[in-house]
Design a protein around this nucleic acid. Structure first.
Length: 653
DNA sequence: TCACGGAATATTTTT
DNA sequence: TATTCCGTGA
């Protein structure tokens, strides 16, 4: 029901009883006080939350007094868009966003209260990892200590330690016992990482949450001001929040107690990065007067699919308190298809989806889901061979591609000249400059204590380097002329273009990306807010992406990891590699809790399907990592009787 | 010190 | 697929 601006419904015209079922209506109409909505898959969760926002505004709550927090940007935008559609322009004033963007807004205003300048930079994940790599190289592991974790592993450990509020030692002890021999070195790297972030005015994603929590805890005046500004708080995907986020919600809401949280414990699939579905139950303890509403009617799938997914959950150790049902007609059983090998699996998927297409189903109404990104490689080849257009979601990140980060690094040092990560990045681009030289230049610039223009006056030893001269020239131009954001970007791009050309053979495509970035800059008057947005609310389209979507191929098959598929639905869903050892992955088999999460992941995958659901399982696959021969379908579905799950053998391929 | 090439290796993902 | 790591030669 998409409405244009002109015909937006006025609040008094919303047909609450007609649009909502009984449970949804109860959640929407519930008045003051804490509310917990347990919303099963496909039960109209977003709809309920949206109507609740509209209802509050209709009752006279000023839209600005509503704060809508979500885990992802996608969810926040979607919710606000739908609320605005339902109600009128007023809903656009509802404050909303991710926890991180909300934290950022608050922290910018109060930076001195936690010992930072207001010009702090935000590190995204690759930035943080680069900082760690630097430190590792500098103070690095003593040579005798053997294998030292890579930067991604390190970051994972530190991030989990923060998000789970556990010590680094504990995390290593539990999750990476093989790293205990180098524990001392890891702790030293962590120490230095933290020190350098404060020294250089850098906040990583986790810091945003940590400092916000601390601010709310230690500065009652700020807490009270925020609690007064936001009289009603709503949180989506609550099962994906971590402890810190839950505490933030509590600190903001414990005064007025008008807090609504929505979640589904059986769809909690992010514990590996600190999410804690226990938050859902703790919520009702933090707010003992909590009203609980369960949404159990499913509007997505046919009953045989729900019978199967309910059955999958039955195998969980932790019992869930709700059972989904539907009134959708249909009696087609889901199928488990075993194939000879990986390519037979790919061919089965291709054949079957072509047949579905002949039956009138669009490609975009079908999806192939898998446990890990690389599981679809063979299928991707097969799809290309058959000229079937597809899009793989997740994976690629525009903002994190090297050329974008290169350009932004030059702009970041203007705002925060201490930003060591960006300095190193831009210096390493210069010919003949390696880590040692970069370090020397940074120190020299730092010693000048004159902002980024320190580069112009710093005494650099060694022979005159023409690359460094060009860089100096860029900075002196930037310094001499006052410029808008886009102008600065243009000047930097002029400087950077030759470097780009030399470094990448696909530079034309990358140049187009950069030009698109320039056009985004046009919208900004303030360099600092541009850079923050790029870290926290980045556009995720590359130039090529927009080209191909606007062109002829709109109807494309979706390939996705199960994680990125959450919240989405398709007519026909293939879950490939439903093989014990792949899904659940061998990495999870040692640990009860991890195995349980894999099961929920399988549940999420299966509940994406509306009508047709296929699991495929190539028999006899060799797992290189563990040296195991995998020969049995996923334990989550292998025991399910044929009355719920049909079995086919695709040996004709 | 730096650049480059080839090999190895891989959960999952958002901010 | 894409990134990262390591070793070698300049």
């Amino acid at each position: 029901m998409a409405l244009s601006k002109e015909e937006t419904i006025r609040p008094d015209r919303i047909d609450y009883t007609g649009d909502l079922n009984e449970a949804q209506l109860e959640a929407v109409e519930y008045g003051e006080g804490p509310l917990l909505i347990i919303a099963g898959a496909g039960s109209g969760k977003t709809r309920t939350l949206t109507y609740r926002v509209a209802r509050q505004v209709e009752r006279g709550v000023p839209p600005k007094a509503l704060l809508l927090l979500t885990f992802t940007r996608k969810a926040a935008q979607e919710m606000l868009r739908r609320a605005a559609e339902l109600l009128d322009g007023r809903c656009r004033q509802v404050a909303g966003g991710t926890f991180h963007s909300f934290a950022h807004r608050v922290l910018r205003r109060h930076a001195p209260r936690f010992g930072f300048e207001t010009n702090f930079s935000i590190l995204d994940r690759p930035d943080s990892e680069n900082l760690l790599a630097m430190i590792r190289k500098e103070i690095g592991p003593s040579p005798k200590s053997g294998s030292f974790p890579r930067k991604q592993t390190l970051m994972g450990i530190f991030s989990r330690s923060v998000n789970k509020e556990r010590s680094v030692e504990d995390v290593i002890y539990d999750d990476h016992p093989h790293l205990l021999p180098v524990l001392e070195d890891i702790l030293a790297v962590y120490e230095e990482y933290r020190r350098r972030k404060t020294d250089d005015g850098l906040l990583d994603y986790d810091d945003l949450l940590v400092y916000l929590k601390r601010l709310l805890k230690e500065h009652p005046d700020i807490r009270e001001r925020l609690a007064a500004a936001y009289r009603i708080i709503l949180v989506d995907e609550y099962q994906d929040t971590n402890r810190i986020q839950a505490e933030i919600v509590y600190l903001l809401g414990s005064g007025h107690r008008n807090v609504t949280v929505v979640g589904d414990d059986s769809q909690s699939i992010y514990s590996f990065r600190g999410a804690n579905f226990q938050n859902i139950f703790d919520f009702a303890e933090s707010f003992p007067e909590t009203k609980i509403v369960r949404l159990e009617e499913n509007y997505r799938s046919i009953q045989p699919i729900l019978d199967l997914t309910n059955r999958i959950l039955d195998e969980a150790d932790r019992k869930f308190t709700k059972t989904l049902f539907t009134r959708n007609p249909g009696n087609r059983l889901p199928v488990l298809v075993t194939t000879a090998g990986e390519n037979a699996q790919s061919r089965f998927v291709v054949e079957t989806l072509l047949e579905r297409q002949r039956q009138g189903v669009c490609l975009r109404d079908m999806a192939v889901l898998f446990r890990a990104g690389f599981h679809s490689f063979d299928l991707e080849i097969e799809l290309s061979r058959e000229s079937i257009p597809f899009v793989k979601v997740g994976g690629f990140k525009f903002m994190e591609s090297a050329h974008i980060k290169d350009l932004l690094a030059h702009m970041r040092v203007i705002v925060n000249p201490l930003d060591r990560i960006s300095w190193y990045r831009l210096l390493l681009l210069v010919d003949k400059v390696g880590p040692k030289t970069a370090q020397a230049v940074y120190s020299a610039v730092y010693a000048e204590n004159a902002g980024y223009t320190g580069l112009l006056t710093a005494a650099l030893k060694g022979p005159v380097n023409s690359g460094i001269e060009r860089l100096k020239n860029l900075f002196s131009v930037l310094d001499a002329t006052p410029m808008g954001v886009a102008q600065i970007g243009e000047a930097v791009l002029n400087y950077y273009a030759p470097i780009l050309q030399r470094a990448y053979d696909d530079h034309p495509r990358r140049l187009r990306d950069l030009q698109q970035l320039l056009s985004i800059m046009e919208r900004y008057t303030d360099l600092e807010s541009f850079l923050s947005d790029m870290a926290l609310e980045p556009p995720n389209t590359s130039a090529d992406d927009t080209l191909s979507t606007s062109a002829d191929v709109e109807d494309r098959l979706v390939l996705s990891t199960v994680h990125s598929a959450k919240g989405l639905e398709w007519d026909t869903v293939f879950v490939i590699w439903a093989l014990d050892g792949r899904f659940p992955s061998v990495h999870s088999m040692q640990d009860e809790d991890q195995l349980e999460e894999e099961l929920r992941l399988m549940y999420v995958a299966a509940t994406r399907a509306k009508k047709h659901l296929y699991f495929t399982c190539p028999m006899q696959s060799y797992d290189r990592g563990s040296g195991m021969l995998l020969t049995r379908p996923s334990r989550f579905i292998d025991e399910i009787p044929e009355s719920l799950l049909a079995r086919w053998q695709a040996d004709l391929y």
